[in-house]
Amino acid sequence: MNNRRNFLKSAGLATAAIGLGMPQMAFSSKKAAPLFKISLAEWSLNKQLFAGKMDHLDFPMLTKKAGIEAVEYVNQFFKDKAKDMAYLKEMKTRADGEGVRSVLIMCDGEGMLGAASQEERTQTVENHKKWVEAAKFLGCHSIRVNAYSAIPWSTSEQDYKTSSDLASAGLHELCEFADDYDINVLIENHGGFSSNGKWLAEMIAKADHPRAGTLPDFGNFRIAAVEGKNVSYDSYRGVDEMMPRAKGVSLKPTVWDDQGNEHTLDYPKMMKLVLAHDFHEYVGIEHGEEGREWESIKEIRIELEDVRRTLEA
């Protein structure tokens, strides 16, 4: 009855608008989609979670209190629960009850996709399958994995190519499985060769699968430390190179240049770059200052909302 009443009310307004010679669209109540959405990465609270000061199951509720309506889980905080359906149901019930969207699961500690042997890579894929299944059950669109390989970072062109060949082979195999679940497999720049935006973009292309995507992390372009000095890749260039296959982005409030120096994030510059790739999905906040985690998360949320309003104007 309420739906019918609302329909008749809307129809009446539209008729009145026509009668007055006014544009019908002026009375549309449909909100325009935001330029981008905001989510919270669970790693932002890692110190509280590891210390037992926060329960993983409370993550959606606390996120909603912070004014954010989407969450990105980290498998480390429910590592033994991937196949525990009662636990996963409780996670889903709590998130749904808060009206909070489950976006993805960040997966660590399950082996190297770029292991040297086919047998090892297949085992790594096997280890990740339970997280693909959990992500599907929770309503996520993706899992995030790492592109670590048996080849440690170096300046060798051969190592650059071999590490890419190995990681792309493992990624393709995992994507073949995830495709049956309608789940994407995202690679984050996470140190070593993966923090070279060009290498990562090329590796994703080499994996040659529509489920293979990226999760650019603004602050993770530190490649390695050599003789006490940082080797890094320009964050803005790296994000730009990774965005064509991005299914999400991860916001840290710092960025890197090519000389091993860290700088404060230029929010408008970075978000203009992200949006230039027709990206309108979730920007995941991944930052929590120790002792004031929630305060710092809210500060970044407000900063992002301000930038969004400015860019929408």
Rank of each mutant, 00 (worst) to 15 (best):
A26T: 08
K64C: 11
G191A: 05
I151A: 07
A178L: 07
V103T: 02
K92W: 08
L45C: 15
S102N: 10
D108A: 09
E90G: 04
L57N: 10
A276G: 13
K298A: 09
I223W: 05
G284Q: 05
S44I: 02
L304P: 12
M91E: 02
S29K: 13
E110Y: 11
D80W: 02
A201R: 05
K129S: 13
E202H: 09
I68Y: 09
R121E: 07
V307W: 04
K298Q: 11
E90P: 04
S117T: 08
S142K: 01
A11L: 14
S195Q: 04
E290R: 13
C175T: 03
V185E: 15
K161F: 06
L113N: 04
I143W: 02
E241Y: 06
P268K: 12
G213W: 03
S10E: 06
A201V: 04
K30S: 09
Q158T: 12
G197C: 09
A33Y: 14
D257H: 10
L200C: 06
E120I: 06
R4C: 10
K298M: 08
H190M: 07
A66M: 13
E42G: 05
K92C: 01
M106L: 04
N127L: 10
A116L: 07
K37E: 14
S28R: 14
R94V: 01
R101D: 05
D180A: 15
A16I: 14
E133H: 03
W43E: 05
A51I: 00
K272F: 12
I68F: 09
G99H: 14
H209Q: 09
K129H: 04
D108K: 06
A207D: 03
D180G: 14
D165M: 13
V231K: 08
L49D: 03
E176H: 09
I105C: 08
G139I: 01
